[in-house]
Design a protein around this nucleic acid. Structure first.
Lengths: 195, 195
DNA sequence: TTTATTTTTGAACAGTGATTCATTAATGTT
DNA sequence: AACATTAATGAATCACTGTTCAAAAATAAA
């Protein structure tokens, strides 16, 4: 019997993240991913169903990670709802700092995922946003958040705002430091623009 | 001499909007667009350079329209900055009401455009957002808008939030009436979620 | 009606790149 | 060492669809 050496699955996935980030999903070539991962083109198909499966698994990982982290965060009894909201926003920004290529894929290919794999994906996405929702509800109970905003609307509002800012940032990182963006996002969500 | 009959260019563009909205740019087939427009496949290339050119011209039209309308809006001396901000948001939502398919293309294919034709497109986009920026500045002068938010950040924040909400709405229109979304957007931008 | 010019057609072409699979290599077992 | 089993290879296949272009059709002018 022969046993698999190394971790080709991981190698391929990491290579794919880089190639997807650089070229975008559609222009990314399997042959390029394989080359970067140091395997033959055909080997990719030993570990992944097809091209889309690679992207889906990348998203699975990100959402799982975010979900676990947010869950821990919410369980923390020493934080107020407002603190938790800030920390939740940090979770997303931190992906960018830890793994910029992954973050680029995450924000750029969201559309693709939504249209081609909503069944597999919506679950994790919605679960994550459900947790976010619970923070808002907590804040409303605490009396610090307004109860006149529809929470379902709020979640897509906030996620979309952050996604777009990160997309622009990724396209031209020099423009702004990520931390300034993060700060402003937190402020706008809380206070809006009215004086 | 023979003269062109009808307005095939317009027919093709309108067909393309429908097909792009339904299938997404990448899966949209030229042959399908031609069929829907009632012309031969090859005829598409008499009026458009290539597939991407169709998408670009669709975007040109939308941005031009938005730009003109926003300009008029801003020139209106009877409106306060806050009124103008609301009206600006209405401009975008109104595309959805007037032509849902066009709006779906507009929000879904923004990515594609940004990555493949920023030179041609960024101009109009940024010009539009510049006008939006002028509304905010007006409000700051009036003393009604906070001056502690970075305006460049604000614009991508707001545009992204709206874009994402409209994308979700388009994917499942039953979920929410568009007007409720619109209302909430206006409120969140102005007041944030803090009580 | 004939000719000239322009529009329209749609089948054929061509480039692309995801996917397959017969072959080879590597490792473990007897 | 010989064998069995699984991993890995990468050139060939295959499907797909954007684009081209020679031919046909429509219209206007002579």
């Amino acid at each position: 019997m022969r046993v698999k050496e190394g971790n080709k699955e991981k190698d391929i996935m990491e290579a794919a993240i880089k190639v997807f980030a650089q070229a975008g999903y559609h222009k990314a070539k399997i042959s390029k991913i394989a080359e970067l991962a140091g395997v033959a083109t055909g080997s990719v198909y030993l570990y992944f169903e097809d091209k889309e499966d690679i992207l889906l698994r990348i998203f699975d990982n990100v959402w799982n990670k975010l979900f676990v982290e947010l869950k821990e965060l919410i369980a923390n009894k020493t934080l107020t709802a407002a603190d938790k909201l800030d920390a939740m926003i940090d979770l997303i920004f931190d992906i960018y700092i830890e793994n910029p290529a992954l973050a680029i894929v995450f924000v750029n290919e969201q559309n693709h995922i939504m249209q081609h794999a909503s069944q597999r994906f919506t679950d994790k996405y919605e679960k994550f946003l459900d947790l976010g929702e619970s923070i808002i509800k907590e804040g409303i109970k605490e009396g610090v958040f307004s109860n006149s905003i529809d929470i379902k609307i709020l979640r897509y509002f906030v996620f979309g705002a952050i996604k777009n800012l990160l997309q622009h940032w990724a396209a031209d990182p020099q423009n702004y430091p990520l931390n300034k963006i993060r700060q402003n996002v937190k402020f706008i969500i809380k206070h809006g623009i009215k004086k």
